[in-house]
């Protein structure tokens, strides 16, 4: 493996992990409600911006991070309560449009509460690059990868081992049967918005020291996360992770070996290609097994 290839691979994995976290947020809400939440990127923005803001106000970084995740989760809950829940019974397309409206509103609010500037965030544990087989790795990349691994493990424990997690899965599979066993499906919807928002915020905080943050970072990161979720198969957890990593690596290789001018276009080409040739994605459930 050439050092250059390794360098691109590490860069791809880092950004891919971020996409994976955003994609997981898309999938969790999609499972609970069949809604593609286009405000998912704004949770990413809120996480980063809120952390920067609190850190600049003198909060210790860990406290700022925890508070920012909670703020984003609260915004997620509010989005469900104030915008999605009142439209209960509306078509999925209507709900998707509501989330687009919410994303515009949240960006607007961010420019009012904060500003329109680009903000750096201090790396969690220094900037000294780590040498690795001829390539260099920033400590922040290790944070991104490590935290993503921990979150993926926690999520698979939650959905695979806890009754609450299984109740969420059951509701996404068969809402009527879930109601009939006594699951409060409105709480499930609320919980999935809160959880997705928290995941998005974590992604936004982890990536802020690498790419900086601003009121509008959610647009592109949201779209990349969406592309990753589509690629992996909307609604599939492992698919979201795989889709994120593949998208990140393809982007990094494309930028490195071809031209960085095409970096963002790759995500859109992937969205179109998947929709044309593989509508249920790499790991999505084929429509046939949802009889």
């Amino acid at each position: 493996m050439s050092a250059q290839f390794l360098q691109f691979l590490l860069a791809g994995l880092t950004v891919g992990a971020i996409y994976a976290l955003v994609a997981l947020g898309f999938s969790i809400i999609y499972n609970a409600s069949q809604v593609i939440n286009f405000a998912q990127g704004e949770f990413v923005m809120i996480g980063g911006m809120c952390t920067v803001w609190l850190a600049n106000a003198g909060w210790p970084l860990p406290a700022a991070i925890a508070a920012a995740v909670l703020v984003a989760a609260a915004v997620g809950l509010a989005l469900e309560k104030l915008a999605v829940e009142p439209a209960r019974g509306a078509s999925v397309v209507t709900l998707i449009i509501i989330t687009i409206g919410a994303s515009i509103l949240l960006r607007g609010l961010a420019t009012i509460v904060w500003d329109k500037n680009i903000h750096p965030l201090k790396a969690f544990s220094g900037e000294a690059p780590i040498q690795l087989g001829g390539a260099t790795l920033l400590p922040q990349s290790l944070w991104v990868l490590g935290v993503t691994v921990v979150i993926v493990l926690l999520l698979s424990w939650f959905f695979g081992r806890t009754l609450l997690g299984k109740a969420l899965l059951a509701t996404s599979h068969n809402r009527l049967a879930a109601q009939l066993v006594g699951i409060n499906v409105r709480h499930v919807l609320l919980a999935s918005f809160g959880l997705s928002a928290a995941l998005g915020a974590v992604a936004g905080i982890l990536v802020a020291p690498i790419t900086f943050t601003a009121w509008d970072v959610g647009v592109m990161l949201g779209l990349k996360g969406f592309a990753a979720a589509i690629l992996g198969g909307m609604g599939s957890g492992p698919g979201a992770v795989l889709g994120g990593l593949v998208l990140g690596i393809v982007e990094a290789m494309g930028a490195g070996y071809v031209s960085s001018a095409y970096k963002d276009a790759i995500a859109f080409v992937i969205i179109l290609a998947v929709l044309f040739f593989l509508p249920s994605g790499l790991l999505g459930r084929r429509s046939s097994d949802r009889v």
Binding site: K166, L169, A170, H173, N174, L176, A177, A178, L180, R285, D289
Partner: peptide
């Protein structure tokens, strides 16, 4: 408690 028409089990679980 109801046993619904068509069984409605949670297939993937």
């Amino acid at each position: 408690v109801q046993v619904p028409e068509g069984r409605q089990v949670f297939g993937p679980l």
